[in-house]
Amino acid sequence: MSGPISPSSVPAVSKGFRLQWEEAQGCHVLLYPEGMVKLNGPAGEILKRCDGARSAAEIIQDLERQFPGAEDLSDDVYQFLSTAHDNQWIRFAA
């Protein structure tokens, strides 16, 4: 899929990438052939919800439930999903 990400877009971590929590580094990392991206806290929280089942809107809802103090998260989430898609870390199942 190309074009803007909508609330109904369903992101999933791309084939060939592996997301995992690294205790030694205290963060999520995205692993791929001979490389790794260290994710900051928010990026890790978003990416671990990109499971090919939840839509972008559901991910935002879920994050707002889990982090009630946070201001409106949707801009940040869409911005990160867009970056992640540009880097081919995620694809859209729908």
């Binding site: 995992q20 205790e23 790794m36």
Partner: peptide
């Protein structure tokens, strides 16, 4: 155990 995650 030291944190290595990529293995070649």
């Amino acid at each position: 155990a030291m944190g290595a995650v990529q293995l070649g």
